[in-house]
Computed example of a mutant assay.
Amino acid sequence: MNGHLNDCLICDGKLEYLDAAEEMECVICHKKHLNNVRCINRHYICDECHSKRGAKIILEVCRTTDSKNPIEIMQKLMAKPFIHMHGPEHHILTGAALLAAYHNSGGQLDLNKALNEIERRAKQVPGGACGFWGCCGAAISTGMFISIATGATPLSEREWSLSNLITSKVLRRISALGGPRCCKRNCFTAAKVAVEFTGEQLAVNMELPVDICCFFSPNNHECKGALCPYSPQHSNS
């Protein structure tokens, strides 16, 4: 498997999205799953195989970085091999980058334990959740970040409320940008919302760059170009 591919990790063929799930066999681990996505050459890779090597890189970087800037951490991760243009590894990446930046900004948590937990939880969110569930994995991962940072459970009061509130705020911001999906765009948007939110609600002030510029558009067949706020075609704040 090569890094940063837009479509099929085996042949780079276009992906096709089925209205109804079918049983498919992963070409890597050969396990069978019900799924809605395969390439036009009928290659199917399960979420576990798609994100396995990327997840290891994500946790290694987030355990050692001293950055207080989640966008900086995300961009460093996105440039690594096995963090593909799109894919469920971004569900881990979003929350992990936020946890690392939060910890480095004075947020009180056991970072190693928190990173292991975000990996466990985020792996339960399938690829394509943005379109099939109507709830982007980057938004869900941001809710997980707040849940872990505050120790929320289904029986919590304020912590429960904050976890759900930030997910809704991220989804609102992501949906306003319109489709089609872009994992890079959605991660950056989630981070911006999370930095604002943690400063207001948790009094932990993470950092953001003056401009957020995405350099991954050449690998994204569906890039919105100048319509994306992170396009190299214009600066943003």
Rank of each mutant, 00 (worst) to 15 (best):
120 R>W: 01
145 F>Y: 10
137 G>N: 08
163 S>H: 06
41 N>Q: 15
69 N>G: 08
237 S>I: 03
140 I>V: 15
40 I>Y: 04
175 S>R: 09
16 E>M: 13
43 H>I: 08
122 A>F: 03
35 N>V: 00
59 L>I: 13
95 G>E: 04
170 V>M: 03
182 C>H: 07
139 A>K: 02
110 D>G: 04
85 M>C: 10
120 R>V: 00
203 A>Y: 11
137 G>M: 03
95 G>I: 08
61 V>A: 09
208 L>C: 03
179 G>A: 09
118 I>H: 02
162 L>T: 01
199 G>E: 14
140 I>H: 03
104 N>Q: 10
93 L>W: 02
184 K>G: 00
159 E>W: 00
204 V>A: 10
49 C>A: 08
223 C>R: 00
129 A>D: 14
116 N>E: 15
26 C>L: 08
63 R>S: 15
63 R>M: 13
76 K>D: 06
89 E>P: 00
40 I>P: 00
179 G>F: 07
29 C>T: 07
49 C>H: 05
165 L>Y: 03
142 T>G: 14
129 A>T: 12
163 S>I: 02
236 N>Y: 03
89 E>N: 04
175 S>E: 10
65 T>M: 07
73 I>Y: 01
61 V>K: 12
90 H>F: 11
48 E>H: 15
26 C>R: 11
73 I>S: 06
159 E>Y: 00
202 L>I: 09
184 K>N: 11
